[in-house]
Design a protein around this nucleic acid. Sequence first.
DNA 1: GGAAACGTTAGC
DNA 2: GCTAACGTTTCC
Length: 775
Amino acid sequence: MALSLSGDDEEYESESEQRAAVNRPKPKMGTTSGVKLPSNRSSSGARRRRTRCRKCEACLRTECGECHFCKDMKKFGGPGRMKQSCIMRQCIAPVLPHTAVCVVCKEAGKEDTLESDEDKFNFMLMECSICNEIVHPNCLKVSDASGVVNDELPNCWECPKCNHAGKSGKSPLVLKQKRGPGFKYASNLPGSLLREQKPVKEEGDISAVTKRRPDREETPRFRAEEALHRQPPLLSPSGQPRPRPEDKLRKKRKLFDDEDEEDLSMRKKEKMDDSYFSKLASQIKTEREDEDVYGEDDEDEKELHFRSSVDRRDTEEDFKNDPLNPSIRTPVGDSDQSYCSSPQAGPSSEGGSETQERGPRPKARRKRHLPNNRELSRELSKALNQEIQKTEDCLAIENRQPLKAEPETENEEPRRLFRNGNELGDQRTHLKAKEMNGTNWELRHFYQSPITPLGFNRSAPTTRPVPPRSPPKCVQMERHVIRPPPISPPPDRLPLKDGKAHVLQREVWMKIFSYLSHPELCVCMRVCKTWNRWCCDKRLWTKIDLNRCTSITPLMLSGIIRRQPVCLDLSWTNISKKQLSWLINRLPGLRVLKLSGCSWAAVSALCTSSCPLLRTLDVQWVEGLKDAQMRDLLSPPTDNRPGQLDNRCKLRNVEDLRLAGLDITDTSLRLISRQMPLLSRLDLSYCNHINDQSVNLLTAKGTTTRDSLTDINLSVCNRVTDYSLNFFKRCGSICQIDLRYCKQVTKTGCERFIAEMSVSVPFKLKEDKLLQKTS
DNA sequence: GGAAACGTTAGC
DNA sequence: GCTAACGTTTCC
């Protein structure tokens, strides 16, 4: 059957091509002619441009005003040359334009007027990803052939004609073009975290197809298999593995190839040892089958290597079985709750879809996988395995000890929810990292246990450790579509296979889940779609700890955003500036941000990113963070755009500032005092330039810190003397002064301070040179 | 190969 | 006719 687009389109095609040829400044050399036909025009139809669905979360958002494309827009003061959509508004399910009609009957889609799924499908417009023809399936008189529905885009399939002819539409270019804006931005984003993956030879395996109902409400699943085996090697710029103290603790890791997939259910069972959970799992097993949850559960559970400090697995067996193990639990799928909430076909990555049978479907079959992705995954797996093997021994196992939880007054969630989140903030952990009056950064990384300054190794190596680096581009920059949190509420009860709902309501489950560690939650997320959504509730993830996670991947970033943590610990990671900036701009509710041990290059993202609710900022031991950088950090936004008239400091609401180990002077303290009126907790330990004059500055008349400071840590500040205690007498709210290991502070001086203060505010010596208010 | 530019489409 | 922005080309 000769199918083509309307005459208008044919007309446009020739006209526009001619115009394009005329307007093109310089015909690209090397092509056969000045006018290069789009690759997909080689087939029978011109492609219809897709447009926003206007329903998905992304479409409903407003422009962020911060991203590269927003900044280009005229309304944000840019030149308007790029003409791209805000990256936060990239439609996840771009649809055919309203003007699209069936090339056979010349009519639009009619699915809205029909009742049954079958009718809906037969009368909806379907665009073939190979020949680009848009037809009603019903208008095709091909009785024995099957179209293969592409779940990645609404109204997209491989038409029966092409499918029957064995054509493949999976050339990388075609794939890219077909994926619509949800994919475009990822690869078009400058310096993107989300860049498109290098295409690999495709494979013609489309044998695993399942039928699909045409219901556009259904959100497709897919697997970003290309992300499966990505672990950035930890290399120094010289290519040498970065030595890390934990190396010797690291377990041998094995990277799963595709077998990992088959292994999932097995591992899932292993995780379900608990009898009740096992029973429940068996009950809801059919929900998996019915609900098409495989991809979703799986992908989500794999997207983020959240770690639990209380659930460290020590045995190799456990390590292998732990789906959260970064090396094993490498991302299989993109994830997001939008799967549940997006009104239309959802986004995708390079991976194909993995779907269960959803009921009878005439003609159309659903691809189980996009065939090229499996091959792609294998190829990547091989390459990355080799790479990872090289650096495997250098990767650090997450073997931190559980430390006391951070006192988080601003966190609304019960503390027990955070049992997984350890507190890296105990500065003692890092105290030995720096020589008191020097700038040695030895031992900057990875202390296994809290130490006291007395344990400080002053004979540490003199060479400065290589600062954290971002993963190599090829690993880091995978294409990955980020979707916003869902709008639709998760179900209140768990559907069971007999059609009934489980007796326990969601909130009861939430209480149970709140006792689980993050790895355990991730396991639960693989059980079924309902649990997947429940376990992703941000109440369970108010604190996300990626401390010392050796590589921050796009999947992890999307996982973080999905969970919208209040507290995010990225300390001692190699997060890049772009990643951090991208992240911060999408975490409007972030209150605690820990970037201890990161590089200034990364932390400088705070200079341009907006984080209005930030209350706690931990930048201790940030390499390269000195007065000049502190000035950048505390200065008002310099890129004010129309509508952005706020000239106040971006960090003006910070109450808890951790600056341990920084080479900052009074210059920075002046700025801090001026720009952070709410500052109550200040950690200046191991700041070797801090002296009595610094304390004088912080407590001087007219400064906000004089009244706002409640807790100051000056431990191991050897230039601070007893004289500073006189300055603290004028602090109205001071409750704790930590002067431990300050060589020039004496016990006598502390006792004198206590005696003099006893008239108004009773203090005690909690430890040697650690003064604490008694009431 | 990635980023920028820009012609042109789609919606209003 | 205007704006938004998709998809392709060109630049670097």
